[in-house]
Design a protein around this nucleic acid. Structure first.
Lengths: 238, 238
DNA sequence: TAAATGAGAGAGAACGTTCTCTCTTTTTTA
DNA sequence: TAAAAAAGAGAGAACGTTCTCTCTCATTTA
């Protein structure tokens, strides 16, 4: 992970910051080398994502990923210590994308609109092609793959738990606020409400309806009906 | 788990069939040989299911399955030509179980009750332990696994399409009947309604709430609210 | 005795990973 | 600034392991 600090580097760090010596240190963090490393890592992650969507985490081999990235194994392993590390990185990024979509919940004024829009945004984002000219495919596949992997891989399971916990928190905060505004009726078990609503939304996302010819807009009334059924808005707001 | 049928026990079951010529043919189909073969196949499938739930389709090796079944590879490959064949058989059986739960839809008198009950039945069945003394686990894991496999395996994809098509047909028939009874309002796009309802139900099933401490009964109002939101029953029936 | 059944070694391919070596870029030294 | 040294980056063969599946040979059953 963290590069071993060699004597020569350590020496130059300790030296005077105002002159040449500090350049080395700065270059380490923001220089050409660092930028190149980031670019390569992203190249690998993009290639891996393509392969994983095509063949699954287990189905895609490191050789597949190397070919897709146009890279040799020796080069690839300079940037990631293992296949496992790549899987975890991609799982985390994918789950985080999902969690970020929920951010608009926190600033919404109408809770039903917000839930509806978040659902649609999610479906739209997940049905997008992931990267350029590759096989026309969507990251909704990764959604299922990550879930399946989490069932037997402790690292991925922890990542899922983290981000899904975040998502539930955001929903819970938005619902609580709406309740205090008098927008929705009190519910006995808010936690269960959030969990089941999220699960149902995920069910829709996994199905990847846009890829089956169902336009995203057609899902609008579906999400709205779901939100209204679960949140039971007070008559005043209808 | 089905008890192992020992050859000697099977031998003394049905002996007397006067006609020699047909005996050979009949024995082939219904005799102890055939019965033993069936028993062995079931033994293998049970073992494979345990392994697949534990490690996934790709994660479980044929050796794992052999060990679990108490069998050598040579013996196992006498009954199944490939790992792929076992995966497909288990996927089909699992999907068929799901489809069968929907049969009660066809004879129901109240559509909302029916949908609610089918959802609960489904969750209950999927959260059951699959086989005796093994690791406490549920077949809801297989649900996710099958979906993930269907994304890249054409055979499994076809199996899913078949059974899920059946499920949608059953739902559609029940909804159409309910509409004709005047129980629910006409809906513009019945196909989409069925597809999204099924997807949301699957989302709940995959989450396997019972394993997280949520009792099945707690899901009753959730499914009911979902059904009412999607089907919009007429006031007379409320 | 002939056919069916099974055990288990192991073939051959594919896997994730590492190793060695070359070439380029950066840093230090003179 | 020019030469020397070190580090970084990458290619590709090769490693040990594990995979699915087959083959041979022994045992059981009819």
């Amino acid at each position: 992970m963290v590069d071993q600090i060699l004597p020569r580097q350590a020496a130059s760090i300790a030296e005077d910051y105002s002159d040449d010596a500090s350049q080395c240190f700065v270059a380490k963090l923001f220089g050409k080398r660092a930028r190149n490393r980031e670019a390569q890592e992203e190249r690998i992650l993009n290639a891996a994502m393509t392969c994983f969507i095509r063949s699954g985490f287990r189905g895609a081999s490191m050789n597949d990923i190397c070919s897709e990235a146009g890279m040799s194994p020796g080069a690839l392993y300079r940037y990631f210590p293992s296949k496992e590390a790549i899987i975890e990185k991609i799982s985390a990024a994918h789950r985080q994308q999902s969690a970020e979509i929920l951010d608009r919940m926190l600033t919404s004024s109408n809770i039903i609109d917000a839930v509806t829009q978040v659902g649609i945004d999610h479906v739209r984002k997940m049905s997008l092609n992931t990267s350029g000219p590759g096989p026309r495919d969507s990251s909704a596949r990764l959604f299922v793959e990550v879930r399946a992997e989490a069932m037997r891989n402790e690292g991925v399971a922890a990542i899922c738990e983290l981000h899904e916990g975040l998502m539930r928190e955001k929903l819970l905060a938005a619902f609580t606020a709406a309740k205090e505004r008098g927008e929705i009726d009190p519910v006995t078990d808010m936690e269960l409400l959030v969990a089941t609503l999220a699960a149902m939304g995920e069910g829709i996302i996994m199905r990847n309806f846009p890829s089956q010819g169902v336009p995203v807009e057609a899902l609008e009334p579906v999400f709205r009906a779901l939100a209204e059924a679960m949140l039971r808005p007070t008559k005043a707001n209808n």
